[in-house]
Amino acid sequence: MDDKTLLEIKDLHVWYKVYGGYLKVLHGVNFLVRKGERVGLVGEAGCGKTTTMKSILQILPPGDSRIPKGEIIYKGKDILKMSFGELQRLRSKEVAMIFQDPTAALNPVFTIGAQIGDVVRYSIALEEKRVKKEKIKTLSARALKEVYMPDPERILTNYPFQLSGGMRQRVCIAMSISSPRNLLIADEPGTSLDVTIQDQILRLLKEIVEKQGTSIILITHSLGVAREMTDRIYVMYAGTIVETAPAKDLFKNPVHPYTRGLLASVPKISGGGIARGIPGRIPDYLNPPPGCRFQPRCEYATPSCQEKPPQLFEIDKDHFVACYLAQR
């Protein structure tokens, strides 16, 4: 770990309690974000992307989730061992998260001004005892201006239902940047929006990140979005990181059979048909398959794949793959 590292997740396991046992969702996730880096986390639905991110902010459902093993080190401190006060500071000063569905993220019965105002107030309240109402208002309006909202003062008095989907997502982004942050987690920020609006939102995020020098973790299921937005991509499958590489290398030279299958399944605008996809489906987390979790769907699987899960292995500079195939 060098001084450029902002966040490092080491061998993280997360279980969810259900009737009949524990869903062993995360199974040894290793993840690293450097200062100012744009990182993409790609994977299909149900592979544990959001769970990983929620465990960074410690907003997993209490009581139903367990972290049996692992470390999440942010700026040299383990988040899992932080006190409540430290966590509050982390959430209001250091890390912010933008959720997938802006309609669900905003409370329909409060005005935009009240909701952004709360975020602003909590982040100032850590330093100043008395917070003036005018200050909250100007800071909120400034945040809205940063995301190119027309007429911010009026928007502050509006309710979420008065705005369109793209505008709501802008409000969510404004909330997350209303006070300076070091890490922004964007959980599928464009998925519930149309392509042209998604394009606008992604361009906006890119600009903000560049302007403020913030690190960003972009969660997405679209490889195209990850390619255009990030420097480094982590590919996740069933609670494990199967491959990570700088964005360019990953698309030029995908190694893990899952990454390859995923990449071939993406329809291309240059035509040429679509590959056959990947047979089977994501494993049952209650009784996950032994060894490599991809092994039941993998066409190259050998008996040794069932014995022990493969570890990440450096095959090229900065290009890691968790597959026995690559090690041979």
Partner: peptide, 8 residues
């Protein structure tokens, strides 16, 4: 659906 399923 996911892309790998979509392809199928």
């Amino acid at each position: 659906l996911d892309v790998s399923v979509q392809a199928k």
